[in-house]
């Protein structure tokens, strides 16, 4: 199978800041990718460049083997509805869907109709008068019903309540099962989307800090809690990504897996072991990977940490 997206050493510099720094990626077909990271980490910038809506300052971009810029052969197969997607003021949701149906070869009106019912979206109301959540629903519906070979969802849930978000995740899994395609889902609500992802890409301050199968990452770290001294003995030379101390107790997150005898040893030392979720690990990593971000310490965790 051929690679869908190939990015080599892409940087994006705005006047004062670097939005992307040396990003190199390869995305395989028919997988659901999670593009995770904090707000402002560079997720939208990267997706804009991949869809030729934005431009890289340097580096190579190949989508379906070609440069996407002004390239109809490539763009025909892509759908990218932005988080803050603009629609013509005069449009209703119905106009937007009719337009989308013109341009996406695999458009499923049946799916669109069903999603409209699911999200209880008023079709004939002027788009300017829709709530933030309803506006997001319009984008989600276009993204799903387009069935584009390469679909980007950029934080698609803004203003959607928990029920509507779950609906989106369910429909995504369901339709993807029947019509496999490459999906890139950008999000900072990691726990919510973690189980949907086959592959995880974590971006932090414009750099890719994680690029691996979700299942590999899930088993790749553990947390030990117990007396600080015993924890230290137990961990030995393992790579620690995070540690918390409280009186004589320590809670340490370390990389690696534990075999049976190590698990037994921990139990005998009276240490507690806990698995580390994708979200916890990403939070730990994005915090440890950004020592330069001491300025961001006043907002240390944002939503990600919770």
């Amino acid at each position: 199978m051929s690679t869908v997206i190939e990015v080599t050493d892409v940087t994006k510099t705005y006047r004062k800041s670097e939005a992307l720094r040396g990003v190199t990626l390869a995305l395989q077909p028919d997988r659901i990718y999670g593009l995770l990271g904090r707000n402002g980490a560079g997720k939208t910038t990267l997706m804009s460049i991949l869809t030729a809506q934005g431009f890289a300052s340097s580096g190579e971009v190949r989508v379906f083997g070609e440069h996407p810029y002004e390239n109809e052969r490539v763009l025909n197969r892509i759908c990218f509805i932005r988080e803050s997607q603009k629609y013509p003021d005069s449009f209703t949701a119905e106009h937007a869907f009719k337009s989308a149906a013109l341009f996406f070869a695999n458009w499923s009106q049946e799916l669109a109709d069903r999603l409209v019912t699911d999200f209880q979206l008023p079709l004939r109301r002027n788009i300017k008068k829709l709530s933030r959540g309803q506006l997001s629903a319009v984008g989600v519906i276009i993204g799903l019903a387009s069935r584009a070979e390469l679909t980007f969802f950029d934080e698609p849930y803004l203003g959607l309540d928990a029920v509507a978000r779950q609906l989106f995740y369910d429909r995504l899994v369901e339709d993807y099962s029947r019509h496999p395609r490459t999906v890139v889902l950008s999000s900072h609500l990691i726990d919510e989307v973690a189980n949907l992802l086959e592959h995880v890409i974590v971006i932090d301050q414009g750099r890719i800090i994680m690029d691996d199968d979700a299942e590999t990452i899930r088993g790749s770290a553990f947390t030990v809690v117990g007396s600080a001294e015993k924890v230290r003995t137990f961990l030995g030379g393992r790579e620690v990504v995070h540690s918390d101390n409280f009186a004589s107790l320590a809670s340490v997150t370390a990389l690696g897996t534990l075999n049976e005898s190590e698990t037994r040893e921990a139990a005998e030392l009276g240490l507690e072991l806990a698995p580390v979720s994708l979200q916890q690990l990403i939070v730990r990593k994005t915090m440890s990977a950004s020592p330069a971000s001491s300025g961001a310490a006043d907002r240390p965790l944002s939503e990600v940490a919770r």
Partner: peptide, 20 residues
């Protein structure tokens, strides 16, 4: 004015090239 400020960004969401 409107066709550029609003319809153009929408057209990008539908992966329409600038030329088209």
């Amino acid at each position: 004015i409107q066709s550029l400020t609003l319809t153009f960004p929408f057209s990008q969401g539908l992966s329409i090239t600038r030329r088209t």
